[in-house]
């Protein structure tokens, strides 16, 4: 285990005002954006949006083809939490989206030292399922996601 924080002093950004949505919205990104921005970073008690790990622009939704892609950016290149963050986002979307969606989570190219590896891990259904069997991981995830369900 790492003894100190990986990134001891992260930059905190202001939460972006949600733009006023007209009903019915043209782009159905609200499906995906809304659930994620409340999520906490596993390392800090800031939300992923405050840390600009996930931004509204980085979420692509194709409602007609039932496809969501989230690209997130870890705060530092050597962040060890990157898979947990990806898993968090994945779980949150699984729980919040209608089942017709295919969810694709990936790390922004160049934002991490092991981008390809992490992406491969996040695409692996088996691994995700296995992770969800692990009570420790599930507990951690639930703690991270708890504020987003309030």
């Amino acid at each position: 285990m790492v003894s100190g924080l990986i990134n001891a002093n992260p930059v905190i950004y202001e939460k972006k005002e949600r733009r006023a949505r007209t009903a019915p919205s043209t782009f159905h990104d609200e499906y995906a954006v809304e659930p994620i921005d409340q999520q906490e970073d596993p390392e800090y008690s800031y939300s992923l949006e405050q840390l600009k790990v996930v931004t509204e622009e980085a979420i692509e939704v194709d409602d007609k083809r039932n496809y969501v892609r989230v690209t997130f950016t870890p705060t530092v290149q050597h962040c060890s939490m990157v898979t947990i963050i990806g898993l968090c986002i994945h779980v949150k979307l699984m729980r919040s989206l209608p089942s017709r969606y295919k969810v694709d989570i990936r790390v922004a190219p160049g934002s991490h030292t092991t981008v390809d590896e992490v992406n491969k891990q996040l695409r692996d259904k088996e691994r995700i399922a296995a992770a969800m069997e692990n009570p420790n991981i599930v507990h951690l995830l639930d703690d991270c996601l708890a504020p987003s369900f309030d």
Binding site: R21, A23, P24, E30, Y31, E34, P35, R95, S96, L97, P98, S99, R100, F149
Partner: peptide, 18 residues
């Protein structure tokens, strides 16, 4: 309900499902 046309309903549905 997760696929409801209204946003507030979807929001409630997510909470309820959780």
């Amino acid at each position: 309900c997760l696929d409801d046309t209204k946003r507030s309903v979807r929001h409630e549905a997510v909470k309820c499902r959780q």
